[in-house]
């Protein structure tokens, strides 16, 4: 009688929680372990850092000295922090376009080659399996070691160019060449794979139609078919390149620091943050403020970039 009148009320509360056919239970059995971990190791740390960023937290994670926005003010007026953003900008100006052009060029060339496609693809893709630490070691100690026996100086000597101390001088800042070529070598294959996948998704019929319409193969088809068809891939590549450049740490740390100390120049944001939070001071309050400023910056850049690309995409249609 009651079951007909109010079926929901008659069900005990645990049945309601468990859901129809225990679906809610099953959902949490599947998703729960991951989700709890995500809360504990991603969300809570971020909130905790937000809390820490308002305290004077040197060498401690349970501070008592509330300083308000002082850490943010310190960070945003610290010339070293601002110059770390400058270092990132400079690095991005080099690495983003260079990697973009090279990976696109490689993908186009390999896509058009008939023989040994798999070999070329593997050769350029292989470095992505290498760690930045190992690459830094090779770049620092075998290619750009600044000695006459280094590979770069050996090659230059064939052209009568004298020895260059690549990493130990700042004027001219040759270390940029070292850092950019290193990251290019390690990353270009990854983006090449993305472009190759994008190229393979272009329907061949478009090229057939263009040929019928009299488009010349080469520049015209590239400009009016291939590149527009790759727009989504290009957008993804640009966002990934920028975010990855922003997170640069490994190769800077490993090529530039020696005997346990890092030079005062060429500190990208994460290197700067690392030394604030884990250097002599262990200033976790200021480090947290820095982490939050950087996270907000990355988020903003990503959103702006995606919106910009989407708008342009919309405008074209």
């Amino acid at each position: 009688m009651s079951s007909a009148a109010a079926p929901a009320a008659s069900r005990p509360w645990w049945r309601v929680l468990a859901g129809n056919q225990n679906r809610n239970l099953w959902f949490w059995a599947f998703v729960g372990p991951f989700f709890v971990g995500l809360l504990i190791f991603v969300y809570i740390p971020i909130l905790w850092s937000l809390y820490l960023s308002f305290f004077d937290a040197r060498n401690t994670v349970t501070p008592t000295d509330f300083v308000g926005l002082q850490n943010y003010a310190t960070m945003l007026t610290d010339p070293n922090f601002l110059s770390s953003l400058g270092t990132f900008a400079l690095f991005a100006v080099f690495i983003v376009p260079v990697t973009f052009v090279f990976s696109l060029g490689l993908a186009l060339a390999i896509n058009r080659t008939r023989w040994f496609q798999a070999f070329y693809r593997s050769a350029f893709f292989l470095p992505t399996a290498c760690s930045y630490v190992v690459a830094s070691l090779v770049w620092k100690m075998a290619i750009f070691n600044g000695l006459p026996s280094g590979l770069a100086n050996t090659v230059l000597s064939w052209f009568g160019i004298g020895n260059i101390a690549w990493l130990s001088i700042t004027d001219p800042p040759w270390y940029w060449l070292v850092l950019v070529t290193l990251r290019l070598w390690l990353q270009v294959g990854f983006y090449m794979i993305l472009f190759l996948a994008g190229l393979q998704r272009i329907p061949p019929i478009l090229y057939e139609a263009a040929a019928i319409d009299g488009a010349k193969p080469g520049w015209q088809t590239l400009r009016y078919i291939t590149l527009p068809q790759l727009r989504a891939t290009s957008a993804a590549v640009l966002v990934l390149l920028l975010i990855n450049a922003f997170q640069a740490f490994d190769e800077f740390y490993n090529t530039l620091s020696s005997f346990g100390s890092y030079p005062p120049y060429a500190r990208p944001p994460l290197v700067y943050l690392y030394f604030i939070a884990f250097g002599r001071e262990q200033n976790l309050g200021q480090g947290s403020a820095g982490a939050i400023i950087l996270a907000v910056l990355v988020g903003l850049v990503t959103i702006l970039q995606l919106r910009f690309l989407r708008e342009r995409d919309g405008a074209r249609r």
Binding site: F34, F35, L38, I40, F41, V42, Y43, I44, P45, I46, W48, S49, L52, V61, I243, F246, Q247, F249, L270, L273, Y274, A277, F278, L284, G287, S288, G290, A291, L294, A295, V298, G299, T302
Partner: peptide
Amino acid sequence: LVLATLMIPAAVTFVPTFVMVS
């Protein structure tokens, strides 16, 4: 909530995560 963490680069959270883990 899961996908939102895709927007936060893992490397930026190394200070917060260290605070938690320590």
